[in-house]
Each structure stands twice: as C-alpha cells, then as structure tokens.
Simulated scan of single mutants.
Amino acid sequence: MDVAALAGVSKSAVSKVFNNRDGISPATRERILNAAEKLGWSPSAHAMALRGERTRTVGLVIARGPDLLTADPFFAETVAGLEQELGPAGYGLRLHLIADDQTELAVYEQLVRERRVDAFLLTDHRVGDARHALLRRLGVPALLIGRPWRGEPTACVHALELEEAMGAAVTHLTELGHRRIAYVAGPEDRVHSRLRRLQIERTLADHDLRLRTVFDTELSGEGAARVTAELMADPERRPTAILFANDAMALTGIATAQRMGLRVPEDLSVVGHDDHPLGQWLHPRLTTVTQDARQVSRAAAVRLLRLLGEPVENEPEPPTARLVVRESTGPAPERPA
C-alpha cells in the first residue's frame, strides 16, 4: 500500500504536500503526513534530483553552545570526515549551532521549508529523539551518526563493537584488581551514555561488582574536574578507577587528581574514550577506547550521498572500536588502613 492509497487521496495531492505547494486543505495535508509516517515513507531523492530541486547541501544541526563544541575534539574529527567526502562530491555542509534543544525542531522545519538542504546528518542522539518522526513527516532523507535506540528506522552508521570495547575496558580494570569503579558519563538522555553504561554494568555484574555512575550534563572539562574532585574527596569511599565519556574529560580528571596530590595510575586509574592524539603525549599516556570518529563520519557521508542517489563508489568501512591500553591504568591500590 502506498501513501496515496492509505490516505485516500490522489498521488498528485501527495506530491503537493511534500513539495510544499498550495491547494491542499489542512485536514487532507495532516492525513497524508500521518499516512507517510505510518509507512515510513519519504520522497524519492532521485526524483527530486531529476526535477532540479537539489541544493547540494547537507544540514547538521547541533544543540550545543560554541564553548562546548570547542571542548569536544570528537566533533572536529566528525566534521573533518564529513567534509572529506561531501566536498569532492560537490556537496556543502550547512552547520547550525543552537544554544539549547528547545528550538531545535523549529530549525529543522525552517531549513526544509526554505529548501536550504537536501538531507540531514544527525548526531548527539537522544533516547526518544523527536527528530526522526519530524524528518519522516517532512519527507527529508536523514542519516544518524551513532547507535540507534530501540525501534528507530532512520539509517545509521557507527563504529562496530563499541559496547564490546567498553566491556574490554572494564575487564582490563577488574583484571588489575579494581573493585570500586566509577563512570563519568555524558548527559543521561544521550543514547551513547545509556548504551555504554549498560555495557559497563553488565560486565561488572559478571564480576559481582556494581558501578557508580555520575552523569555530567555538559561533557565538559569543567564538569569533569568538579566530578573528579567530588569522587576523590573521601579516601574511604573514593573509586580506584574512573571511566570518562571522552578523552578531554579524562585528561581533565587526571590533572584534577594530580592537583589533589594523587598519583595516576598508582592511586587512581583513568580510562578515556575516542583516542584523542593528545592522550598519547601527556604523562601518563591515556588508556582509552578508540573508534576513529573521522572514519565513521566519512562512511556516514558516503552512505548519505547514496541515499541521495549520487553514484558514489568505495564506501569506507566503519571502524571497529577497541581498547588501547597505555600508562594511565595500573594495579588497584590497597585500601587505606
């Protein structure tokens, strides 16, 4: 069954709705949009290209302030990978930074209404993310960079075996004798925060251990410093190992612990995520989970170009995440007497 049949209208009425043309009543428009969403249907990108309606622009809307973006090296690597594939294909990346997610959906609608973009790339995926249903309703191709949540039909590209790599990090710590392990996560509603936490908890449960989780709503160095100081303040209760949501937070955590007179890894083991180049040069060198953000975004860009009907060859393979063990992890210290 197609959209027109399900909505009880003509194919030309469906075309008018998805091309933002007049002549359709609000009730009929809503019925067509509901039918399209139910069927998971969006207009053919190839057909749009034949009509000459392409902007050759891909939208990327980020609900973070500029300060938070500059503090997250993962974002720079993601943009670099996207540009590496979109540019040679004749496409530009239209980046929108918004300070909060309250106006986020309106930005997507405006870009579609004004025909500024041909498709969207989605990042910072949230549990119950409303963007998926919105973009299906608007009839715009979209691709998620990251892991999907349950039952979401949007196409996605992500590093392989991410959860397994997190499990390997936990196993590495337990084999070093650590029993008090904390996880300083990203925002609680982020899918990657949930999935990583679940994997860490499952792995710890295999060793009859429980996780102490601290959600940092900003993914920032400032937040990591504050949380690390709080976790390490009480010698009787402080963890002997901390996993951080990204390397920038992990490096800040190391610096904070050292300012408190603690040694890494003798007093505290630290594990990061994303394998930022700085982690290899600071002392101690950072143990981390690597997932090659640039390679992931290159693969995502090529996959999206194919969704748009572009004749792209040699799609990069998504990388496989893995644990990289360096000097920031060591044997667990003995409990204070």
Rank of each mutant, 00 (worst) to 15 (best):
A71S: 14
L176Q: 12
T70P: 06
A119Y: 01
A130K: 15
L111Q: 03
R197Q: 15
L60D: 01
R136P: 03
R196E: 02
L122N: 04
L134C: 07
G92H: 08
G167Q: 05
L122C: 04
T174M: 14
T171M: 11
L95R: 09
Y183H: 15
R196D: 07
F75E: 08
H125P: 02
V184F: 08
E152K: 04
E83M: 11
L93S: 05
E188V: 14
E83V: 03
A63P: 01
D124I: 11
E201N: 10
L144M: 12
R194M: 14
A169C: 13
R113P: 05
E104G: 07
D118K: 04
P148I: 05
A159V: 10
G128S: 14
H132M: 12
L121G: 05
T57R: 12
E104H: 09
E188C: 06
A159M: 01
R190L: 15
G81R: 05
V157R: 04
R202A: 14
G177T: 08
Q84Y: 10
A99G: 13
R116N: 08
R56T: 04
R196T: 08
G151P: 04
T174E: 12
A155C: 10
A165G: 07
L86H: 01
L173Y: 06
V117T: 07
P66D: 04
L198N: 09
P187D: 10
L144W: 00
L82K: 00
V170T: 12
G139I: 01
E114C: 01
A130E: 15
V191R: 01
V184K: 06
E77D: 12
L82I: 10
A106K: 10
A155K: 02
R115E: 15
L122D: 05
R179T: 15
D129C: 05
R131N: 02
D67N: 14
R197F: 06
E188F: 07
L86T: 02
G167H: 04
R194Y: 12
S193P: 03
L69V: 13
A76C: 03
R136V: 09
E175S: 09
I62E: 02
L162N: 02
G92L: 11
T57I: 07
R194E: 11
L138S: 02
L144D: 01
R150I: 12
T203W: 04
T103Q: 15
T203P: 00
T154W: 02
Y183L: 13
A155Q: 09
V58S: 06
E188D: 14
G139C: 07
H158P: 06
G65Q: 09
A80G: 11
R194W: 10
A133N: 03
H125C: 09
V58K: 00
L69I: 14
V157H: 07
L105D: 03
A168E: 11
L195V: 11
H158D: 14
G177P: 03
I145Q: 01
L93F: 09
P153Y: 10
G151S: 05
T123P: 03
G177I: 09
D101Y: 04
V58C: 00
